[in-house]
Design a protein around this nucleic acid. Structure first.
Lengths: 221, 221
DNA sequence: CTCAGCATTACGGTTTCCCATAAAATAACA
DNA sequence: TGTTATTTTATGGGAAACCGTAATGCTGAG
C-alpha cells in the first residue's frame, strides 16, 4: 500500500498536476521537493523518524539556479535515495525518451516505474502508481522497442570514445596516439576510419559532423 | 479583458495545471485542444459564430501519434491562427530556451507573450496573462540576456544556417549552391569559411565537429 | 607446425578542407 | 562622380580526410 509520497520536481506546473493526481488516487500524505538536496534530506529525516516514505516520484533533469545544489540531477538523487532507504519505491516522471536512460533505470538501478511526460501522462501516472502499489513495475515497453529499432547501430565503448574525441576537436590523425596512450585497441588510423565509416553507413550519414550531431541528440555523448 | 481562452497543449499533465491556473484567474470559458488541427478549427468556428477567442495559449512541440495532423507544431499553428483571426492574442507556453526561437516569436510573429516551462512557470503564467489583459507583452528578458551572455559569440541567422547544413551532412563545398537557391547572401565558399573560422576562433575550437557539438549542447541548432 | 580466416595496420591516390592572398564587387563618403 | 573602405568572391598550394587495396599480425582447427 502506498500512503506517503515524496515528489521531487522543479517545474511548478508539473507539480500542480501531480498534486491533482495524488488527490484523485486518495493519497493525502505527500510532499513536494523542488530541489534534489531537499528531497534527499526529507527521505533521510523521515526514515530516522521511523515514518519513511513509501514512494518517491522524481524528474530526471533539474534546472540549475542560484540555489546551488550538491545533487544536480534525478539519477544521482535516485542512487542516494536508494542508499538512504533501500526499500523505497521509485517512480520516474520525465520527458526523456532516451532508450539508454530508461534501460539503465529499469535494469541497473531497478526502479519501479517510468512514466514519460507526454499526451496521456496523467492517466498513465495513475496506472503506474496503482501497479506499484500491487508490487508490479511499470515501463513503457512499446516506446523502448521503437527507440531501439531506430538505433540501427549499437554504439560500442570504442565508438563513443572516438566520436567524443572528434567532438572535442581532436584531429582524426591524432586519435591513434591517444588510443595507444590509453591502451585502447585497436589503435590504427585505418581501424578508426573503418569504424566511422561503418557508423555513418548504418545511419546513411555523409560526414562526421552529422554523427556528432546525432550522438548529441541521442545523449550518447 | 480576457474572457475566452483556447489552450493548445498535448501533454495531459500540463493541461491539468493550465486548467488550475485558469480557474485561479477566474477564467471559466476555456477549452482544450490536444492537436493543432483541432485548435485551428475551433478558432475558425468560434470566429464564424462571432464568438471569437480572446487568447490562445499554445505549446510549440506536439508529439506525433497515429492521429495524423496537417499542422504538426506550434509555430505553424500560430501563423495559421493569425491568418484566421488577426486580433487573437497569443501566449506561448513551452520548454524551449532557444534564444533564436523566442526572438522569432517576439520580433517577427509578434506574439503577446512567452512563458518557459520551468521552476515557477505557473506563477509566471498568471503574470503573463494579466499583463496581456492590460495590453502589455510578456517575455523572459533575463533568460534571453543570460543565454546571450553565455554565448561569447553572437550566432547570426547565417551562422546557424551554415552549422545546421554541416550537421545535416552537407559538404562544405556544396553549401554555396544551397545558399544561392535560398537567396541567402553572402553565398561564396570563402565567406562560409571565413565565418566558420571566426566562430571557431572565438571559442578556441579546432574543428567543425566541435562547433556542431557545442551548438547542440546549447540548443542553438 | 601449418594454414586458413579474420582483424588490424600500412600505404598511395583522390577529394575535400583549410588558409593565405589577390581580384572583384559593393558600400560610403565627399 | 571618383576615390577610398569594406565586403564578397576567386584562386592556388598544402594539410587532412577519404577510400580502396595490399601487407601484416593474430587465432584456432586440423
Amino acid at each position: 500500500m502506498i500512503k506517503k509520497v515524496l515528489i521531487a520536481e522543479d517545474h511548478e506546473s508539473a507539480n500542480i498536476s501531480l498534486q491533482k493526481t495524488m488527490e484523485e488516487l486518495g493519497i493525502t500524505d505527500f510532499h513536494h521537493a523542488f530541489y534534489c538536496d531537499n528531497a534527499l534530506e526529507r527521505i533521510q529525516r523521515e526514515k530516522a523518524r521511523n515514518d519513511s516514505y513509501d514512494l518517491l516520484i522524481t524528474d530526471l533533469s533539474f534546472e540549475e539556479d542560484s540555489n546551488v545544489q550538491k545533487i544536480k540531477d534525478g539519477l544521482t538523487l535516485i542512487k542516494e535515495a536508494r542508499l538512504a532507504q533501500p526499500d523505497l519505491r521509485i517512480l520516474v516522471f520525465s520527458a526523456s525518451k532516451e532508450a539508454a536512460t530508461i534501460e539503465l533505470l529499469e535494469k541497473t538501478l531497478l526502479i519501479d516505474g517510468y512514466v514519460r511526460k507526454a499526451r496521456n501522462d496523467a492517466k498513465e501516472l495513475k496506472e503506474a502508481i496503482e501497479k506499484i502499489a500491487n508490487n508490479q513495475r511499470h515501463f513503457p515497453r512499446h516506446l523502448m522497442e521503437l527507440v531501439k529499432q531506430k538505433n540501427a547501430h549499437d554504439f560500442t565503448k570504442f565508438d563513443i570514445t572516438v566520436i567524443s574525441l572528434l567532438a572535442q576537436g581532436t584531429l582524426q590523425k591524432d586519435i591513434p596516439v591517444y588510443l595507444q596512450e590509453h591502451n585502447i585497441k585497436p589503435a590504427g588510423l585505418s581501424s578508426i576510419e573503418k569504424r566511422l565509416n561503418l557508423m555513418k553507413e548504418s545511419f546513411g550519414f555523409a560526414k562526421n559532423e552529422q554523427l556528432v550531431a546525432y550522438c548529441k541528440d541521442m545523449g550518447i555523448i
